[in-house]
């Protein structure tokens, strides 16, 4: 029941934000509405238990493409805002986010690194499996991660190498390493040279 309500809620937001993307006059607002529509559509996917696709949706569309749009839009509208002044204003918010992450790490670490029985790894260890939990609570992201880090580790490393190459290559192509400054004539120096100051015997 509650899932249905959430579905209607998010789809309503999706439709409204998609409309507002087209209708709003300010282009920055329209990009922000686009981001909102991405977020709401990914939460609909989340309700349909496609966690991985929804996460990818957020990471790729919101994290990369919409931000790119935003950059372009902001470059078009020339408005100088001095961000350095009000960095103090963002300090409480930033520290709040940092504290949240710290709490998350503090919650995760003690549960993950429990000191285990050394016989635990061997197959002689009689352990109790809750098969229902094993089967049903195995999320998509977990299964993809399991596959990626065990069976397809070489492919994972290869794609990491490709990413490294994709960062090294363009930097190499764009980087201009000129050690020698260009030889231009400084007029003042030239005029202030006199016969007596040049010759040394």
């Amino acid at each position: 029941m509650i899932v249905n309500l959430f579905f209607y809620f998010f789809s309503f937001i999706l439709i409204v934000s998609a409309l507002m993307t087209i209708l709003s006059q300010n282009s920055i607002y329209s990009v922000l509405f686009l981001v909102l529509s991405f977020v709401s559509s990914s939460s609909i996917l989340f309700l349909l238990e496609c966690e991985y696709i929804s996460l990818i949706f957020i990471i790729i569309y919101v994290g990369a493409i919409a931000v790119l749009f935003l950059f372009v839009v902001m470059m078009l509208d020339v408005k100088t805002v001095y961000l350095a002044k009000d960095s103090l204003k963002y300090f409480p918010f930033g520290s709040f986010i940092g504290i949240v992450f710290l709490i998350e790490i503090a919650l995760i670490i003690p549960t993950t690194f429990e000191s285990a029985n050394p016989y635990n790894v061997s197959f002689l260890w009689n352990c109790y499996f809750d098969w229902f939990n094993k089967l049903d609570y195995f999320t998509e992201v977990m299964s993809i991660g399991h596959l990626l880090y065990t069976d397809y580790i070489i492919q994972f490393l290869l794609s990491g190498n490709i990413l490294l190459l994709a960062t090294v290559g363009p930097v190499t192509l764009v980087l201009i390493r000129s050690t020698k400054p260009t030889k231009t004539q400084v007029t003042f120096k030239q005029l202030s040279r006199t016969y007596s100051s040049v010759l040394h015997i």
Binding site: I154, Q155, L158, I162, L165, G169, T172, L173, I176
Partner: peptide, 25 residues
């Protein structure tokens, strides 16, 4: 021995070739 591995390795090889082709700035 796998289409994914083959694709990724071809990409690795050819990406570096693209950059090598444009190396004379």
């Amino acid at each position: 021995n796998d289409l994914i591995t083959a694709y990724l390795s071809i990409e690795l090889q050819s990406l570096s070739f693209y950059i090598m082709a444009a190396m004379k700035k």
